[in-house]
Design a protein around this nucleic acid. Structure first.
Lengths: 126, 126
DNA sequence: TGTCATTGAATGACGCGTCATATAGATTGA
DNA sequence: TCAATCTATATGACGCGTCATTCAATGACA
């Protein structure tokens, strides 16, 4: 039985989907075109950039993002290959790694962030 | 320069992401476990189920979903392979196809829809 | 200290979505 | 009516995320 509430839920859900997909696609294309990195790469860069302490972070990153641990690992692979980030082993727990932005990483991030915020504004803040 | 508005935008965006991912993952797992279809399969099934007219629909479907045309095509492949849907060529335009639920498709949809709505309610309607 | 369980991260196989194309049918206009 | 163009769908190569597993380091407890 399709209740009115059901229909409202489905509507709400589709609206979230559209909002999410449209925005994500827009940002992804723009970042890809201008900076040659995808949305997930940027999001990790953004998280690293906003971390102040140099605590062991790979793990922490996974908690701040809906990405899987293995997804994070692969995104970081790409970022590292692109020379934007480097993995540094933790001295107090040698299983752990923390991430540092390279010069290039910091530079790219600050440019890309402008683009990112602008597109968020455009897509979310109507 | 990270303005307050920027931070708010990023917060809003992360909140949308979480809402979307958490909900999508929950529904996907549940449908996969109980009905052996993924979320996108269900969404197409749902769209087909809610179409009343028998207009040529493959095309129309693509307009109601953030999925790509080719994604829709492949989702329909799987649905068809699973015997839940069948492609029927349009008599008035033989490039077009419309979709029909099979008996199995209709049955599965009505069960799965209950689950789907329940999970939406649980995840969206707090 | 030695064993056993646990934890942080990496890896390979796999599925799915995307992009660029292909194909077949429709439409337009001379 | 015949090209040229456009439109609806399908397909193959490819990239990325996920799952399950692996590996190394740590912790717990006897």
């Amino acid at each position: 039985m399709a209740t009115t509430q059901d229909r409202q839920l489905v509507e709400q859900w589709r609206s979230i989907q559209n909002s999410y997909f449209r925005t994500a696609a827009a940002i992804d294309r723009a970042l890809e075109a201008k900076f040659d990195i995808g949305l997930n790469e940027f999001e990790i860069l953004d998280l690293v950039a906003e971390s102040v302490d140099s605590a062991c972070r790979m793990k922490a990153l996974g908690e701040r993002t809906p990405m899987t641990q293995s997804a994070v690992s692969k995104v970081v692979d790409r970022l590292e290959k692109a020379g934007l980030v480097s993995r540094v082993t933790c001295s107090d727990d040698r299983r752990s790694l923390y991430l540092e932005l390279t010069e290039a990483g910091r530079a790219l991030h600050s440019d890309a962030a402008v683009e990112h915020r602008a597109l968020l504004k455009e897509n979310l803040g109507e």
